[in-house]
Amino acid sequence: MAFVSPVSSRSPLHPPLPTPSPFTTYSVASTGWSARPPPIHVYNIVLRSLALLLSFVSALSLSIPSSKSPSFHDYQTLTYCFIVNTSAFVYSAYQLFKSIWDIAYPGICISEKTSDYINFVFDQIAGYLLISSSSVAVLTIQDMDHSKPLWKAAIVSVTISFVAFFVIQFCALLSGYKLCKRIVW
């Protein structure tokens, strides 16, 4: 059995093994780690999917009432609520796609640090818009006729929008955690 020097085994053909990171590396063949993504990525995908679903249902519930009754277009605050919920749906769809992309190909489009900053800021903005639109819509709902189908749809929409706000704020907490973990620790 021949003696092999550790220096000679590290040739340019064999680059050094990367240091495992809790955010980017999912498997290292020589250490036997599992190929599962870190739990923070899984939680992020679940929360983003839930935010996508809730914002879609909230916007859809405003647009479905029958054509005989007044539409949400007749009320500015309900229109604002519809636009914000649609924007939250588009934002959640983008974030869900980006989260899945980041697991498959980390750091290709945007650096991970920049991505963490962007996620944190836009999660805060989306949360603020959802809570403000829902709060303003509550005042309009109180002044509406209670026998109209739009009144029931507006209540459903605002309730689901409040729940979507909490889900997006949990996403913001995860984004803030990832940002602090990357910067401070």
Rank of each mutant, 00 (worst) to 15 (best):
A137T: 08
A51R: 04
T140Q: 13
I64E: 01
T114C: 13
L53N: 00
I118D: 03
F120S: 14
P16F: 02
V156S: 08
I118E: 03
M144T: 01
V158A: 13
L129V: 11
L60K: 01
D102N: 12
L47C: 09
D74Y: 12
L60M: 07
A59P: 00
Q142F: 10
Y91M: 14
F162Q: 03
V121Y: 09
S87A: 14
V90E: 01
P16H: 05
L150C: 06
F89Y: 10
Q95M: 15
V28L: 13
P18C: 14
Y43F: 15
P18D: 02
V138Q: 13
D116R: 10
I100R: 06
Q76C: 13
A88N: 04
C109A: 11
S161L: 10
G107L: 13
S111N: 07
L62T: 05
D123K: 07
I64K: 00
P149Q: 07
H146I: 09
P20C: 13
P15N: 05
P22K: 04
V46M: 13
S147I: 10
L129S: 08
I40E: 01
L60D: 08
S49N: 04
I131G: 05
S147L: 09
A137F: 08
V136D: 05
A154D: 06
A35M: 07
P70Y: 08
Q76S: 12
D102P: 02
P106T: 05
S133H: 07
S69C: 10
T140S: 14
E112S: 15
L62I: 07
F120W: 02
V158H: 02
I131A: 03
V138Y: 09
V84Y: 00
A104S: 11
I131T: 13
L52S: 04
S58Q: 04
S66G: 09
S135N: 14
